[in-house]
Design a binder for these strands. Structure first.
Length: 469
RNA sequence: UGGACGGUAGCUCAAUGGCAGAGCAACGGACUGUUAAUCCGUCGGUUGGAGGUUCGAGUCCUCCCCGUCCAGCCA
């Protein structure tokens, strides 16, 4: 047997290899159908594309009866043969096998958890180690990768630098939510100070440390030197959130731009989202066709519409006004000064404008200390991008670059200015208006695929009471 | 964390307080250049866990565990 390099299924199906070529395919069998005419059809999958390739094996092969006719779903195989135009319907090319070797058998096909039938997502989460073998998770994985690559490409093409902000932070000043503690102390025998408190001075970092809830404060340091920067990495929130759009561990993209106001920030958010969705439409038509057929009928059309449309923009005050005039019987009546509820977000994006909407200039009392005070003294330059079906996909703001105003806000919110000494330094030395936002990467994948539970768009979801895999 | 709903065969689900079933999968056979193939047959159960009521509990009661959805927190 001549030694040849393996060909990806995607390449073989796309005609990247000329018909008549001898090729080697390595992958897993999705389905096998036998014909008494003395041949079997193996659909072989290797993850390189949504579609499997059909391998035609005949009883002329020495192991036809002993092995090939017994190949179960998800056995690992190496198939050598000739790439030919298919005689059957449903595929352009197939492989006339000259050799089929089973590399790995399936121990017990009867209890193998992934049978070739429809499974509930709920069930698949219980077998997260095997679910990448399904159509849906496979397609999601390729789209997720496509989006991640598109994000880096978008920023790279626009002169941004990727900044690796720390995962472990000793700053307890991020204030974006409950944090996971990082400690090497013996929990059964904690060191105490004289007044009985836990002595974190004895801990690994000599002080309390946590997993990051946001790279924003750190990335601002690099923004005020390198102008256009972004983070893209894991983020941790210890909130007891049990919803289809929250994870305890998720990936966040946080660009930060210098010499920019909130309007430029919104422009950046809109351009980035469009770039990403266009990449998915261009690069993953096979997977998107599957999502449109089986998951969400508008999966493709809504992305096409979004790429071509201008996002709606309105102020928080206008949004409240629209909600009040909607005549809807909301569970919580919208009124100025209170945050926009999920039901309100849905109305705005799904019914009022029927596309993503950027809501800007929120009341200062419901937003973080670092957001820039507007001239009205009542609102801050914050924005949320609301996507139909998902809700908040991006949250951002122009940052308060004026030291006196920042100090005033820190004091107002009962925070300790000493905790922010290095953040304050940015305002002391060459301060400049700047802005940025946080994009929940999994929420982006949700929107792109039409899936509805965030636990199905990350390989191994971490949620309260759940970290099995 | 609060509220609602749920947990029965490998999977998806039935079963008035009275013999635990079907479809799919798997396995065996028939048929077929097949495509979620089709037809026949076989196998398949500690009904989430622990108590309780009852002649009798998958079903009713109590507690616990787990899951999903809605809400809050947010990305």
């Amino acid at each position: 047997m001549s030694k040849i390099e393996p060909t990806a299924v995607a390449a073989a199906l796309a005609g990247a290899v000329p018909a008549g070529s001898e090729i080697l395919i390595q992958g897993w069998v999705r389905t096998r159908r036998d014909s008494k005419a003395g041949l079997s059809f193996l659909h072989v999958h290797d993850g390189s594309s949504f579609d499997p390739i059909q391998v035609v094996a005949t009883n002329a092969l020495p192991n036809y009866e002993s092995e090939i006719q017994k190949i179960p779903s998800h056995a690992a195989v190496e198939c050598r043969g000739t790439l030919v135009e298919s005689q059957g319907k449903g595929q352009k090319f197939e492989i006339q096998a000259s050799d089929v070797q089973v590399v790995g058998w399936v121990e017990d096909p009867d209890t193998y958890p992934i049978s070739p039938k429809r499974h509930s997502f709920e069930y698949l989460r219980e077998v997260a180690h095997l679910r990448p073998r399904t159509n849906t998770i496979g397609a999601m994985t390729r789209v997720r990768n496509c989006l991640a690559q598109a994000i880096h490409r978008f920023f790279h093409e626009n002169g941004f630098y990727w900044i690796h902000t720390p995962i472990i932070t000793a700053s307890d000043a991020e204030g974006a939510g409950q944090m996971f503690r990082v400690s090497t102390l013996d929990m059964a025998n904690l060191p105490r100070t004289e007044d009985g408190a836990i002595d974190y001075g004895k801990d690994f970092f000599g002080r309390e440390a946590h997993l990051t809830v946001s790279g924003q404060l750190n990335v601002e340091c690099y923004c005020l030197a390198l102008s256009k920067v972004y983070t893209f990495g894991p983020t941790f929130r210890a909130e007891n959130s049990n919803t289809p759009r929250h994870l305890a561990e998720f990936w966040m993209v946080e660009p930060e731009i210098a010499f920019a106001d909130l309007s430029k920030d919104a422009d950046l958010a809109e351009a980035m989202l469009k770039y990403c969705f266009k990449a998915v439409l261009d690069e993953r038509p096979d997977d998107m066709a599957f999502f449109a057929q089986r998951i969400e009928p508008t999966a493709i059309s809504r992305l096409e519409a979004l790429v071509g449309a201008t996002f709606a923009r309105m102020t928080y005050t206008e949004a409240i006004d629209a909600l009040q005039k909607s005549g809807r019987g909301f569970e919580f009546a919208p009124h100025w000064g209170v945050d926009i509820q999920t039901e309100h977000e849905r109305y705005l994006s799904e019914e009022y404008v029927k596309r993503p909407v950027i809501v800007m200039d929120y009341p200062k009392d419901i937003k973080a200390f670092y957001m820039r005070m507007n001239d009205d003294g009542k609102t801050v330059a914050a924005m949320d991008v609301l996507a139909p079906g998902i809700g908040e996909i991006i949250g951002g703001s122009q940052r308060e670059e004026r030291l006196d105003m920042l100090d005033k806000r820190v004091a107002e919110m009962g925070l300790d200015g000493h905790d922010y000494w290095w953040y304050r330094d940015l305002r002391r030395y060459g301060t400049v208006p700047h802005a940025g936002f946080g994009l929940g990467f999994e929420r982006l994948v949700l929107y792109a695929t039409g899936l509805t539970n965030i636990r199905d768009v990350i390989p191994f979801p971490r949620t309260p009471k759940s970290a099995e895999f």
